[in-house]
Write a protein that binds this DNA or RNA. Structure first.
Lengths: 236, 236
DNA sequence: AAATGAATTATGTATGACATAATGCATTAA
DNA sequence: TTAATGCATTATGTCATACATAATTCATTT
């Protein structure tokens, strides 16, 4: 092969994606194309084999992927129909703490702090008297903040879980339950140091009082202080 | 069928899940079992057919699902290895605004507000002088807040996108880019009313000033005010 | 010693056959 | 007439087999 020959060539990278990859993308494009809505049917497997000119195996694998990410569902005789995907369903499946890399685990943990502070406004607006009563029940058993006690993750989960529920945002609530295994894993594996209380610490009981008698702004800032022991693991 | 006969029956619902469903779960359980880590190999397809007593088709479909949610990857000759999944990659694929139901869209929009308020602490701690300079560049072109102007979503995205980047949390940053289509969709489809400025509105320019000279708490509360026009779509 | 080529191995694709669940329709029994 | 039963149909679910293709190893050649 001579240099001149090389120069005359105009080589473009070959498309190394598999057939299934291509079919998958074609189908996703089909779904995105505004014309299709949840409940609509997509062509049968055999029709797709004819339309796209690939084997049923390939069609099935591509459909299987869409099914996996919750974009379609299939039933016998009926074929496949478009579905409004449950975003968190995927996270639920793929979030296996021991195979997540540490950077992602840390990000997730941080995400929790971010969400719980930002959530204050939703909580303050949406908490009902019954909700507050329930919170008061929960914090009755809160470990004394002045004493050196083990960090009680179960109590933690109970209290903050209730907050997520009060937020009235189902996506957030699901988020919390899904991320919980990751949180526990982070604590258990000592990826961050176990939190300690200090004098200025805002307890759960304090939070409930503020929720009852304070303002959204006060709650927001108190929540930040409450979580401070976690933040300190990150900042200097 | 007599009543006495009915009573004596103790019928439990049959397991109607497909073979692929079962194999998928078996494999996921295998991954969860602490002993397996990223990089580890899992048995070959033919080995699995023997171990589980199902056809290669079923094995392949189950493996294909794990591949789809990013738990494994496969190469020819080498087989399949465990992978630390990219959580956001999944969201990216399944988040197709026009087939999401409205409740989820609303949740997502709300999630954005929550995150941006809660993120203030990360931003304040991690913003470098260069970051602040860049922000100042961006807000130079900010529409005047006293005038009645169209809500400029591109400018919005530019400014807040930079904030996500400053947060130093890659998961958050990805989040934002993924959720963006959903945001745009919410605005375009008028699911929430278009925001209007009022006298007490905190502008982007105000935010940058506070980031430069204020405190984390001030930034947090200012961000809440900045986003207030969105919140007002939700509360009363 | 480097380049080439053949054998090997495990995933990727194709095809045909049959199993199974859902549905509609015809038939039957009360 | 009506409800129950059985049958045919249809599209997905599963199986088996064959071959294609990419990655790796190792022997062969220059």
């Amino acid at each position: 092969m001579t240099d001149t020959y090389k120069k005359s060539l105009n080589i473009t990278a070959v498309d190394s994606s598999s057939l299934v990859d291509k079919v998958e993308q074609i189908l996703i494009d089909l779904l995105i194309s505004e014309k299709l809505n949840p409940g609509d049917q997509i062509p049968k497997e055999l029709e797709l084999t004819k339309m796209l000119g690939v084997s049923r195996t390939v069609i099935r694998e591509a459909l299987n992927r869409l099914k996996t990410i919750g974009l379609i569902e299939s039933t016998k005789r009926k074929g496949s129909t478009i579905k409004s995907p449950d975003l968190l369903f995927l996270l639920r499946k793929s979030l296996i703490p021991n195979i997540l890399d540490q950077a992602t685990l840390k990000d997730i943990f941080e995400l929790r702090l971010v969400i719980e502070i930002g959530m204050s406004d939703l909580i303050f607006e949406r908490a009902t008297p019954d909700d507050i009563k329930e919170l008061e029940e929960i914090v009755k058993f809160e470990p004394d903040s002045t004493k050196e006690v083990l960090f009680d993750i179960d109590h933690e989960v109970k209290f903050h879980g209730k907050l997520y529920q009060i937020s009235g945002n189902n996506t957030l609530l699901d988020f919390q339950t899904i991320l919980l295994p990751a949180f526990r894993y982070v604590y258990d594996s000592r990826l961050i140091e176990s939190p300690e209380h200090d004098s200025k610490w805002v307890s759960h009981q304090d939070l409930v009082k503020i929720l009852k008698n304070g303002s959204a702004t006060k709650l927001r800032n108190a929540m930040r202080k409450h979580l401070d022991r976690h933040f300190r693991g990150y900042f200097k």
